[in-house]
Design a protein around this nucleic acid. Structure first.
Lengths: 209, 209
DNA sequence: TCATAAACGGAATATATATTCCACTTTATT
DNA sequence: AATAAAGTGGAATATATATTCCGTTTATGA
């Protein structure tokens, strides 16, 4: 009775590369369900944060609760799996901006994009900020990877004198998180996001004189 | 059996002016308990946010759960009562800065103070940002009052050309909330708050050239 | 001091939801 | 087609906590 189908949360997102066999080759129907669950969970988490009921995800995904739990033994683990994707995308995006001609623009474009994307995605917000959950694993995962690339992006921008020198990646990360949260929490006044982002960016720039 | 001791949440904080009789003159022990509950709730909410159990508050306040519920029929109402105090303080503080010589400094001093105070107070954060709860009543109450004074403070600062003209009180409020949340959520890197606040303030300033 | 209404305490109740369990299906293998 | 292994659904369980209920205690005014 010793169930050990519990894969570690970070190595499994279900290797899309159809050729490779994957963790242990799931049965075809199982793999399909897994994808459905992840997709559904993503949209729910993004829209409503961690408070969605597992039952609702299961229903919408067209599977039973039990199936969700077979794949993700815990709500938290499901969340982690969902977030792990997003994280990857963010990091990749940052990396692709690392060899941009204008380090300053690369930097500002990146934080703008992260903020705009995040403001529409409660799941990401929760993951980045640690709101709503403890998030041992993911949090540190995100922090490490994202802080790294962000740090590089920032360093280049600072070297090219586009960004003030007295701040670090932590500041930037905090500012992004805060801005995302602020936008998310505010009544949806039109124009708010743009205005706020502009304030942040201006505050980060080196001063003219 | 029709209990109607349910006072409206905003008119009752227990009128300190000992001379006036108050809402309906509580029995002396009842009044004492009410204060204890409010005080205890404040510190708990500030430290841990809305997730504290009512039972814990009751215990720490030295009363039974029933007594808490007699005074505040709902966890949410208790929270509202607690927040109402803080709100009042914030508004008063803003008002007292309205006739400061230097409108710019008054403005920046105020948002700095709110941010620094808020970052240590999860209750305020929750109330301001709407995190963790719906907060119909308080939210709008805070919004209205605080937005008002904040607007005045901002207007003066803008007239004196200390703050860029293209933003409104909503932006400022969102920025404050975001900053508070960012600081609160970040691991406590020393110096983070100062650095972040400085970025925000710089971003709000009119530009030199 | 007594009677009475007000207030109290905390066990019991209600509710919401995460998680488990297992009899039943479906897939893969022969 | 038959069988074993893998996977499934969803009722049942476990748990956490907000809220109610009511017998007991306490302040107050005569």
């Amino acid at each position: 009775m010793n169930e050990d189908h519990t894969r570690t949360p970070l190595d499994d997102s279900l290797s899309q590369n159809s050729s490779t066999v994957g963790p242990k080759s799931l049965r075809v129907d199982a793999r399909r369900n897994r994808v459905r669950i992840l997709d559904t969970a993503l949209s729910f988490f993004a829209a409503e944060g961690l408070s969605v009921r597992i039952e609702e995800i299961a229903q919408q995904a067209g599977v039973g609760i039990g199936t969700v739990y077979r794949n993700f033994p815990t709500k938290e683990l499901l969340f982690e799996a969902v977030i792990h994707r997003y994280q990857q995308k963010l990091v990749e995006e940052a990396e692709s901006l690392l060899d941009h001609d204008d380090p300053g623009e690369a930097f500002f474009r990146y934080i703008t994009r992260v903020i705009e994307g995040g403001a529409a995605n409660k799941a990401l917000t929760a993951a980045l900020s640690g709101t709503e959950i403890d998030m041992e694993t993911v949090a540190s995962g995100i922090s490490d990877n994202l802080r790294d690339v962000l740090g590089k992006l920032l360093a280049r921008a600072q070297q090219s004198d586009a960004v003030r020198a007295d701040i670090g990646a932590d500041h930037v990360k905090a500012l992004m998180v805060g801005t995302i949260l602020a936008i998310e929490k505010s009544a949806d006044e039109i124009g708010l996001p743009v205005g706020i982002i502009s304030v942040i960016c201006d505050g980060l720039r080196t001063k003219p004189i």
